[in-house]
Computed example of a mutant assay.
Amino acid sequence: MLRQGTGTPLVLLHGVTCSERVWRQVIPLLAPHHDVIALTALGHRGGVPAQGPMGIQDLVDDVERSLDALGMQQVHVAGNSMGGWMAIELARRGRALSVCALSPAGCWDPSARNHRHATNILRRVMRVTELTRWMLPVMAQLKLVRSLGMRDNAVHGERMSADDLIDMADDLLGCAARHELLDSVGQLVGLDPLPCPVTLAWAECDRIFPPKLNGTLARTLLPQARWQLMAGVGHLAMIDDPSLVAEVIRMAACQELIPQT
């Protein structure tokens, strides 16, 4: 767990194969406004080990246990990709004061075609990481390597430090649940009316979940949600522009629920 700041609690949830470390550049920007808590998901490197088969609801159960241990009934929640889906599920369970879902997972078409598109990219990234991890301490020093290595997830992978790229590779390889989670084709169930304010913030240059496909489906599943397109960033928008991501999250926590008419 990474924790910094004071104020109303704000929980950050990462995407599949990542960890709390993906939020390191964003946390200090939110700390003046919130008690910021970044968690590592069940079955991921540094998180609670998974016991047996698991799916999205098991991940959400684990977050609820963390909230209970912290003595927190309701919190603002922001999540990216898988973490965005988890954030929406926490809202469904009544644990969220607000949700900022950054390119959330779970928004597949009925044929799961866009699910296969995403998982095919991620499996390729896994294979390349497995083959090249041994040379990263040297190669990650090069901006071109960082840019190419992160091209599916970020527009400006070169903005990462070499250590951050190595950490991300180790998070991926250390995620015991990675194959199981990618094999799962569960879908986000629509949420209407909303139990709390929800912002769908989509990365304009998202190659994993393109906004014209997954973003459009998300808007049909959560028709009352506030929609925002984040310009110039990729799927892991916190790598491309931590300041933009922090501001989007901060504003999402300020939203008020619009009553149905």
Rank of each mutant, 00 (worst) to 15 (best):
R21A: 10
A231I: 04
A41G: 01
M1L: 13
Q73M: 05
A101C: 05
R146Q: 10
E180Y: 01
L213C: 00
R45E: 02
P259T: 02
P197N: 07
C18A: 12
A237N: 09
P32E: 08
V99D: 08
R133K: 05
G7V: 07
G174R: 03
Q74K: 15
S111Q: 14
P9H: 13
Q4M: 12
Q25A: 15
T261Q: 10
L90K: 02
R250D: 10
Q73E: 14
D61W: 11
A203Y: 11
V125W: 04
L122A: 11
H117N: 09
S81Y: 04
A237E: 04
Q73R: 08
A246Y: 07
L188A: 02
W23I: 09
I166N: 09
E130R: 15
L10C: 08
W134N: 10
P223I: 06
F209C: 05
S243A: 15
V75D: 03
H179G: 05
D167S: 07
R65Q: 15
D62T: 06
S147P: 00
N80A: 09
D241K: 09
G174C: 03
D240M: 13
R65E: 12
V36D: 10
D163P: 01
P197Q: 07
P210E: 13
P53E: 11
A154Q: 04
R95P: 12
L59P: 04
C254T: 10
M139Y: 03
S81I: 08
D164I: 00
H34T: 04
W227K: 04
R92Q: 05
H33K: 07
M230W: 00
L257K: 13
A237S: 15
A201V: 10
M135H: 05
D58H: 15
R24K: 06
E89P: 01
T6I: 03
A69K: 13
V145Q: 05
L188E: 01
H115I: 00
G106H: 00
R124K: 14
H76W: 04
P211F: 02
D35A: 14
P195W: 11
R226Q: 12
V77A: 12
G52I: 02
R151W: 08
A203D: 06
E204P: 03
Q51I: 14
M168H: 09
L10I: 10
V11K: 06
E158W: 15
S66I: 07
L131H: 13
L257V: 05
A169L: 08
T199Q: 01
G215I: 06
